[in-house]
């Protein structure tokens, strides 16, 4: 006899899984057999020093780069065979905001909505809702270039969620932004996660790593640690994620 039980976080379905995922460039191994999984609705921090292989791993997951070996599936689709299906089901935002400065807010939304094949009416509905949520209705026809950085960033995040992707990849989304705006930005991330969107985020800010449900730390192409921020701090006897990161990234120090 089975009864309905509340699903604990660990029993949620995995939306990203990798097994021994590897990328080789000539003789250089950028990503060395990484295996991990990310659950639905989780905020997954993907950390690592520059050159540790974060970007390469992310490119493989977003379908931009095909892996050398190993397995990976994203949103239920295989990265080798179904890269196009993956693209339809993920959102992406880079630290450069990815909005066109010489187009208006409405035009940017219309463009990205169109790219993901949303219908005209859907785009119109979503534009209204999005502007209302961000309290930007008055700026509908303002050029992106006229907006402050923080607004651009929130807008870019919302636009990348326009087509209701299962997973959103954020590549250092808060680079060059002041702490208050960063904080507000993370509120948007929490909101999205609470609605069931999986957030896969890379960052250089260790305080942001504390906000994640789980964090993986890459060193030289390998995942050296993967746990909740609390778990990691306990394991490395550190009081902050910053200390954890320094211990791992510079083992000799």
């Amino acid at each position: 006899m089975e009864t309905t039980t509340t699903i604990k976080p660990d029993e949620r379905e995995s939306v990203i899984t990798t097994e021994q995922l590897t990328k080789r460039f000539a003789k250089f191994i950028a990503v060395d057999a990484i295996s991990f999984s990310v659950k639905k609705g989780e905020i997954f921090g993907f950390l690592g020093a520059n050159g540790a292989g974060k970007t390469t791993a992310m490119k493989m997951l977003t379908g931009l780069l095909s892996p050398s070996s190993g397995k990976a599936s994203v949103a239920g689709f295989d990265v080798y065979k179904q890269a196009e299906r993956i693209k339809q089901n993920i959102g992406y935002m880079s630290q450069r905001f990815s909005l066109y400065e010489d187009l208006t807010i409405a035009e940017n939304i219309r463009f990205y909505g169109g790219v993901y094949g949303l219908s005209r009416t859907t785009i119109a509905d979503k534009t209204g809702a999005l502007l209302q949520r961000l309290q930007l209705e008055h700026a509908r026809n303002a050029l992106i270039s006229s907006l402050p950085l923080g607004w651009k960033q929130k807008l870019a995040f919302s636009v990348s969620l326009l087509h209701e992707p299962a997973i959103i990849f954020l590549d250092e989304p808060t680079g060059g932004v002041d702490p208050i705006t960063r904080r507000q930005f993370w509120e948007l991330i929490y909101e999205a996660a609470s609605e069931g969107v999986t957030v896969f985020v890379t960052t250089h800010y260790m305080d942001e790593a504390e906000y994640c449900d789980r964090v993986s730390i890459m060193v030289n192409g390998r995942i050296e640690a993967l746990d909740s921020p609390r778990g990691l701090k306990e394991r490395f006897h550190a009081s902050t994620m910053d200390e954890v990161f320094v211990t791992l990234a510079r083992p000799s120090a």
């Binding site: 931009l64 450069r96 990815s98 909005l99 790219v115 993901y116």
Partner: peptide, 13 residues
């Protein structure tokens, strides 16, 4: 240069 190319490449286009 603006980084929008990355976004376009990740999109279904």
């Amino acid at each position: 240069e603006l980084g929008t190319m990355e976004v376009l490449l990740v999109s279904p286009l």
